[in-house]
Simulated assay, not measured.
Amino acid sequence: MSNIPHELIFDILSRLKPKDLIRYMCVSKAWYALIHNQDFIKAHGERSIKTNSTRTILLQVATCPLDFISLPFDNDEMLGTATKVGRPMITKYHLTNTVGYANGLVAICNYTDKYIALWNPSIQKLKKIPFTTHEPHAHPPSPDFRMIHNYGFGYDSTNDDYKLVAIVHFGDGEDVTLSFQVSVYSLKANSWKTIQNMPCGGFSLYSDYLMFSNGALSWLMSKLDGEDQYKILTLDLASEKYREFPIPDPVDGGDIEDYTPDLGVLGDYLCICLTLYDYRRDVWIMKGNGVTESWSLLCSIYLLGKPLLFSENGEMVLLMMERKGYNRLYWYHLEKKNFKKACRLRRRPLTATICRESLCLLLDDDPIKSSKKRKFSNE
């Protein structure tokens, strides 16, 4: 193989799946070094995104220990066979939750042992990050004092860094918000830091989830005085600056108090679902720069379903819906407004995350220690 140009080997290997590349690291020291190379890992990830390949739906199911199931899909209509992809952590209780995803890495919060696991299911690599600590002088101790941790995860392409964001909510026994503290963990620096607090303006966190899209984390805020008013707050991971914008107005001009908002991500767009009285769901996507006019109504569905992804041609949306005691996946055609069954899930998932296979976290290997454990062929 020494006669084969390095560029050709680089190109061929970058087309392979991560699990195959892990095996091929044993071919030679040169291949081991190449697959561990940062430029190769980035090129492999960029090719996966460009070719829209190795996509899966990662389902977290309610088992103890925690189980994940991978459901691959390659085209607009056919889904593959669901398979177990491993148990990234062992816990006594179901106090775990998926809090984010970026470039093949899944962030899982372990509330029992107080850490976040960055897990790459395609190569079974895991890195544990302890919870952020709050400033000890932030609040005096009291019997009713409590803290709630909310976490989000995303990729800062400007600095080529993966970041966790922690919003620590300080409150009392009557659910009165005292203050917030926001911290950011950098995988590159391997440390937490406290950043400027978010602009609340009489609003508090509405949901526990921070959604990652286009280099920023976004979350829903609701009015503290009991009025049904909402806004979206966004933190840019590169600049670490905040921006806020309104949610869309109801389609029929009704009162927002009749709707339940739910923030998510659909494709490359920030998405919000407004559910009316548990029978109609209006799905909006953000196509602009964070103003009311940037919201575009995608569809109104009279069966409640969570939108997961667009089909490759953009004509359909994959929905996860509960029917007759089972979670089922359906394709919904945006123009024809009809449904087509995709598959039935045998176990009810807690979360569903759209993933791509990648080599992220492979560089956490110690090349010297790892090479001693591996047996290479002659170069």
Rank of each mutant, 00 (worst) to 15 (best):
Glu77Phe: 12
Lys127Asn: 06
Asp113Ile: 03
Asp76Val: 04
Leu71Trp: 03
Thr98Phe: 05
Thr81Ile: 14
Pro88Lys: 10
Pro121Asn: 05
Gly86Pro: 07
Phe73Arg: 01
Lys92Ile: 08
Lys128Ser: 10
Asn110Cys: 12
Leu105Gln: 01
Gly86Asn: 12
Asn103Arg: 07
Asn97His: 13
Ile116Val: 11
Thr112Glu: 12
Pro72Gly: 07
Trp119His: 03
Ala102His: 00
Asn97Ala: 15
Val99Phe: 04
Asp74Thr: 08
Met89Ser: 14
Lys125Trp: 01
Pro72Lys: 07
Val85Trp: 04
Thr91Asp: 06
Pro121His: 01
Asn110Met: 07
Val85His: 07
Thr112Asp: 10
Asn103Tyr: 05
Lys127Trp: 04
Thr112Lys: 08
Ala117Ile: 12
Glu77Val: 13
Asp74Gln: 11
Lys127Tyr: 08
Ile116Met: 05
Ala107Trp: 00
Asn97Ser: 15
Lys128Gly: 08
Tyr93Met: 13
Met78Asn: 14
Asp76Met: 04
Thr91Arg: 13
Val106His: 01
Ile123Glu: 01
Ala82Trp: 07
Ala82Glu: 11
Pro88Ile: 09
Gly86His: 11
Ala117Tyr: 04
Val85Met: 12
Tyr115Cys: 11
Thr91Phe: 08
Ile108Tyr: 04
Ala107Glu: 05
Leu118Trp: 00
Asn75Trp: 02
His94Gly: 10
Asn110Phe: 06
Lys114Cys: 10
Asp113Val: 03
Lys127His: 09
Lys84Gln: 15
Asp76Glu: 09
Leu118Asn: 00
Trp119Gly: 00
Leu79His: 08
Val85Leu: 10
Ile123Asp: 03
Ile90Asn: 15
Lys114Gly: 05
Trp119Phe: 07
Lys114Ala: 11
Asn103Trp: 05
Leu118Val: 02
Pro121Arg: 02
Tyr111Gln: 10
Tyr115Asn: 11
Glu77Arg: 14
Tyr101Met: 02
Met78His: 14
Ala102Val: 01
Met89Pro: 10
Val106Leu: 09
Lys128Asn: 13
Asp76Arg: 03
Leu118Tyr: 00
Tyr111Leu: 09
Val106Ala: 01
Lys84Leu: 15
Lys128Glu: 09
Gly104Gln: 05
Asn97Gln: 15
Thr98Asp: 10
Leu95Gly: 14
Val85Phe: 09
Tyr93Val: 12
Tyr93Ala: 12
Thr98Tyr: 04
Pro121Lys: 03
Pro88Val: 09
Val106Pro: 03
Ala102Ile: 01
Ile123Leu: 05
Ala107Tyr: 05
Leu126Phe: 06
Gly104Val: 08
Ala102Glu: 00
Thr96Trp: 12
Val85Lys: 06
Gly80Asp: 08
Trp119Ser: 00
Val99Asp: 06
Val106Glu: 01
Ile90Gly: 14
Ala82Asn: 09
Asn75Pro: 00
Thr98Glu: 09
Gly86Val: 11
Phe73Asp: 04
Lys127Ile: 08
Thr83Tyr: 13
Pro72His: 06
Pro88Asp: 11
Asn103Val: 06
Asn75Thr: 06
Thr96Glu: 09
Tyr93Gln: 13
Leu126Pro: 02
Gln124Gly: 08
Thr83Lys: 15
Leu105Gly: 05
Ala82Ser: 14
Val99Thr: 07
Lys128Ala: 10
Ile90Met: 15
Lys125Arg: 10
Leu118Gln: 00
Thr98Val: 15
Asp76Lys: 02
